[in-house]
Design a protein around this nucleic acid. Structure first.
Length: 242
DNA sequence: ACTTCATCCTGTCAGC
DNA sequence: TGCTGACAGGATGAAG
C-alpha cells in the first residue's frame, strides 16, 4: 500500500510529466471516489492547468491554476499512472484526466475504492492538513517533536508510529522496517523509550524512508509508479517480515 | 482526553 | 473443482 516513499515517487513522476498541462476532460466512472459532488468536481477542474504536484504525509496535492488544489489519498490500493489516451481502461480504473496537446491520460485505479479525491478551497492546504489532524511529515520531523509525540503515551510504539496525527507518512511496512532497523520491539510503550533509543529510532525512520525513495518505492503487492513500473525497495529491505 | 472498534471494498487464500 | 468465509489494511467517526 502506498506510504510516504510511494507517494513521493508518484509526485516526482507526475511533476516530470504534467506541469503546465491543461486539463480538458474528465472521465469519471465511479463517483464514489470523489468527495463531494461529481459534477462540480468536473466543472471546477476542467480548463485548469497543473502548476505543480507535491505530497505531505501520504496525501498528494495537485496544485492547479487559479489556486485550485486537488487532494488525492490512495489509501490501500489506489494507483495513479499515465496511459495512452486511447488505452482501454484496466479493470477498477475509476477516473481518467485528459490533457490538451498531450497523448497520454492520467488514470486513477483503485481495487478497493478506499482512496479519495477532493477539491480544496482555494489552495488552502495548511488548513486542510490541520483539519485532517496530520502531524509533522515523517521526513521532516525533528527529535524534539518525535520525543514529545512518543513519550507522552503508553500505547505501543507500532500504534504510535502509525498514528498520522503524531507524524504523517508512515504505514505498516515502514513502521516495521524502522523498528527492526532500530532494534526496538514494536510493543514497547512510547513512554518507556530512552533518549538514545529515540535518537536511533529517528535515524532509522529517516534512513528507511530515504532508501525507499531512492529505490522508487516498495512493491509488495500492487504499488506502481506513474509509468506502471513496480518499485524495487522490497529487494533492499531488512525487516523480519519480508 | 485518550484509546479502541467497526466501517468501507475486493482480491486472495485456507479449508472443506 | 468450486464454494464459503476469514482476512488484510488507512482513515474516520462512533463508542468505550
Amino acid at each position: 500500500m502506498p506510504e510516504l516513499p510511494e507517494v513521493e515517487t508518484i509526485a516526482r513522476g507526475l511533476n516530470n510529466h504534467l506541469v503546465n498541462k491543461q486539463i480538458v476532460a474528465l472521465d469519471i466512472r465511479c463517483s464514489k471516489i470523489i468527495n463531494g459532488d461529481e459534477e462540480s468536481f468536473r466543472r471546477i477542474i476542467c480548463g485548469l492547468r497543473i502548476k505543480r504536484i507535491y505530497r505531505y504525509g501520504k496525501y498528494l496535492f495537485l496544485v492547479l491554476s487559479t489556486e485550485v488544489v486537488v487532494s488525492i489519498h490512495l489509501r490501500m490500493s489506489g494507483q495513479l499512472f499515465l496511459n495512452g489516451y486511447e488505452a482501454i481502461p484496466a479493470k477498477h480504473t475509476h477516473l481518467d484526466f485528459y490533457f490538451k496537446n498531450y497523448n497520454k491520460k492520467l488514470s486513477y485505479r483503485d481495487i478497493r475504492k478506499f482512496g479519495r479525491l477532493e477539491i480544496i478551497s482555494k489552495g488552502d492546504i495548511s488548513r486542510y492538513i490541520r483539519t485532517k489532524k496530520l502531524g509533522p511529515d515523517a521526513l521532516e520531523i525533528d527529535s524534539v517533536s518525535l520525543s514529545t509525540a512518543l513519550k507522552s503515551s503508553k500505547r505501543p510504539l507500532k500504534a504510535l508510529l502509525l498514528d498520522q496525527s503524531l507524524l504523517a507518512g508512515l504505514g505498516n511496512i515502514y513502521v516495521d522496517e524502522a523498528l527492526f532497523l532500530a532494534g526496538i520491539l514494536p510493543f514497547t510503550s512510547g513512554n518507556k523509550l530512552t533518549g538514545s533509543q529515540m535518537e536511533i529510532l529517528l535515524n532509522a525512520i529517516s534512513e528507511v524512508l530515504q532508501q525507499a525513495i531512492k529505490n522508487r518505492g516498495t512493491t509488495l503487492s500492487d504499488f506502481i509508479d506513474v509509468h506502471g513500473k513496480q518499485g524495487s525497495n522490497q529487494f533492499f529491505m531488512d525487516g523480519a517480515l519480508y
